[in-house]
């Protein structure tokens, strides 16, 4: 499979009144066509900021380190995302080759413009369709994502649709330009479980149908297990573990990943009490030295945890973990 996007040593800080705040630090990953990567972490872990960086969508006060590289591989050649300066050039990463769907579909649609008008508008921007073609294509897309009566729905406004319907419309809109990469930022968090299951099924089918890559951002490991091929776990801006979804969930190596899985209420085990991870994620203003997880870790192995950044250790060729417990090759 060919590569779709490569992220190398992405480090991103925000300039604020209180100084530079590190949001993402030294994150590298790549995504191939037809793959789904789950990006997991709690609030403040930097997962949304990472995704926005792929579209060059972070606020003006964002400072990228010189080593940071994001390369989008398209049929027309490679695009160095972070070097894009003009709005005209950014079209390719904003709705062209990359589309994004957000958590709150109500906030993503303009409230006073009909769904159809918004879909047509972006199609006219990103393709050479005529208005009639664009409208026809929009109706087709609405039909594809399972919206009944697409001819009627296309002229409705976002507030007239239910939550699940709105998220479907959002997906239809994001996919209508045939992007190579879809970034889904907590797309099912605001939905009820029964609707969430429907949307997950829909997205799974669309990956195969459109042969695109998806970056699925979520805090819900269950959702990741059901959708992703690979999972990357983030904590305080750092990627602390990554690998194939089965391996990471069945055999988590990082104490944080282990803690996340243990804290999850499971239906097949109602007897044992829930095991929280003690403490809170530290404020980005007070990043601990050494391993970023050392303020909450129950498996501290020595001074190294407190002072030395743990290296990326290969559990096997595809599963990596950043933790001092393990030594390269000698992983138990």
């Amino acid at each position: 499979m060919s590569n779709l996007i490569t992220v190398q040593n992405l480090t991103l800080k925000f300039r604020t009144d209180e100084g530079l705040i590190t949001a993402v630090e030294d994150v590298s990953f790549r995504l191939r066509k037809g793959e789904v990567i789950g990006l997991v972490g709690e609030s403040g872990s930097g997962k949304s900021v990472t995704a926005k960086a792929l579209m060059h969508l972070n606020a003006k006060n964002a400072v990228y380190s010189p080593e940071s590289k994001i390369i989008l591989h398209t049929d027309e050649g490679d695009v160095d995302v972070l070097s894009l300066r003009k709005a005209k050039d950014m079209k390719v990463v904003r709705g062209g080759a990359i589309s994004m769907i957000f958590q709150e579909p109500m906030a993503s649609f303009a409230p006073a413009i009909s769904i159809g008008k918004q879909m047509v508008e972006q199609l006219m921007l990103h393709s050479d369709m005529s208005k009639e073609q664009a409208r026809k294509h929009s109706i087709e897309m609405l039909d594809r994502v399972g919206i009944s009566d697409p001819h009627k729905r296309v002229d409705q406004f976002a507030f007239e649709l239910s939550g699940g319907m709105r998220q479907r419309a959002m997906i239809a809109m994001a996919l209508s330009t045939k992007p190579k990469l879809l970034i889904a930022d907590e797309p099912t968090t605001a939905l009820d479980v029964t609707i969430q299951a429907q949307v997950i099924d829909l997205m799974k089918n669309l990956v195969t149908e459109f042969d695109m890559g998806i970056i699925f951002i979520t805090h819900d490991l269950g959702v990741v297990a059901q959708t992703a091929d690979y999972v990357s776990v983030m904590y305080l801006g750092r990627l602390i573990e990554k690998g194939p979804v089965r391996e990471v969930i069945r055999d988590p190596r990082h104490p944080y990943t282990q803690g996340l899985i243990a804290a999850l209420p499971k239906l097949d085990d109602l007897e044992n009490p829930l095991l929280p991870i003690p403490g809170d994620i530290p404020s980005p203003l007070e990043r601990p030295p050494g391993c970023v997880f050392n303020t909450r870790c129950s498996k501290i192995v020595g001074d190294a945890c407190m002072s030395v950044l743990p290296p990326d250790i290969k559990v096997n060729p595809v599963h990596r973990v950043a933790c001092h417990i393990y030594k390269d090759e000698g992983v138990a």
Binding site: M165, V193, Q198, G222, I249
Partner: peptide
């Protein structure tokens, strides 16, 4: 149906039970 809609932690657990249509 509510039970079967909960995403399982097991990636190979294809939910056999019925999924709800509609809203």
């Amino acid at each position: 149906a509510l039970f079967s809609a909960i995403p399982s932690l097991d990636p190979d657990d294809e939910k056999s039970a019925q999924k709800l249509e509609g809203e």
